[in-house]
């Protein structure tokens, strides 16, 4: 396996008095599907925001494939192979589904600068866009504007736009929140399949424990900005501290199906 894909060193973040990341030393290995869980407000989204450049790092360091990226702008991290989806749908509302997915494909293949060539002639890009639409099951909605999609389809598009950047490391922030069971199963199957293909390493924030334990090779439990437990599903299930937090605190949060 060799060197980990991404590592952090004493990564910290505070919002006023609230500590959302305290001296986090994490590392993500290639090919290990990792889940991040924890009660609401534990700092899961904040961690993704820090690693992907959405939030500036207040203290600590981030390395990706041995290279320091702590202060690298977002689009450069994406070019290196780090991408994400958002907990709250964050797509291009007035553009069609195909256009939404096409933007990352164009950017990645370096074709987005061309101001003269007609998009309809970019057949390679169109074909690749189709592949990603199929992966999330939105081929049928190709020409629908994002604003006209149902909530579940919007969630699928959210993930599709992230996938289309063909990242090496992909953070999915509650990808299945608010989906109906059919969509959720299809998306999870696709994630599993893509993870097996091995080009993309997934890190998923998820509230549904069935999903977490069936999907993950590793689980990180965050609580108030600290790592409460980090290990295989079996280790986490057996961990006394985790039980304490979830049983003493907010059981409902962990096992409830999150409605966004």
């Amino acid at each position: 396996m060799g060197e980990p894909l991404l590592t952090t060193e004493k990564l910290s973040n505070h919002f006023g008095m609230v500590c959302t990341a305290r001296d986090l030393d994490l590392s993500f290995e290639q090919g290990v599907l990792t889940s991040i869980i924890g009660p609401n407000g534990a700092g899961k989204s904040t961690l993704i925001n820090l690693l992907t450049g959405h939030l500036p790092v207040q203290a600590g360091k981030i390395r990706f494939q041995g290279r320091e990226i702590t202060r690298l702008p977002i689009h450069k991290r994406v070019r290196l192979g780090i991408c994400r989806s958002f907990q709250v749908v964050n797509v291009f509302p007035e553009l069609t589904v195909a256009q939404n997915v096409m933007i990352p494909v164009l950017a990645r293949t370096g074709r987005a600068w061309n101001p003269i060539r007609s998009l309809s002639r970019e057949t390679a890009v169109t074909r690749e866009t189709e592949v990603f639409l199929e992966k999330v099951g939105l081929q049928g909605e190709r020409d629908t504007p994002a604003t006209a999609l149902s909530h579940g389809d919007l969630r699928l598009l959210e993930v599709g736009v992230a996938l289309a950047a063909a990242p090496t490391l992909l953070f999915l922030d509650e990808p299945t929140a608010g989906m109906n069971p059919v969509e959720r199963v299809r998306l999870l199957d696709n994630i599993r399949e893509l993870a097996c293909e091995g080009r993309t390493t997934f890190v998923v924030v998820e509230h549904d424990m069935d999903v977490v334990f069936s999907l993950s090779g590793r689980i990180i439990v965050l609580h108030r900005g600290e790592v409460l437990c980090d290990g295989t599903p079996a280790q986490v299930r057996a961990d006394a501290k985790v039980r304490e937090v979830y049983l003493g605190d907010d059981v409902s949060d962990l096992f409830r199906y999150e409605e966004e």
Binding site: P73, V78, P93, E94, L95, I103, R108, A112
Partner: peptide, 21 residues
């Protein structure tokens, strides 16, 4: 053109555009 689509993406959602690379 592709450039035009990238511009439209920036209009629609600049932050997401950055995350699209």
């Amino acid at each position: 053109s592709p450039f035009g689509l990238a511009l439209a993406g920036i209009r629609e959602n600049a932050r997401r555009s950055e995350f699209a690379g």
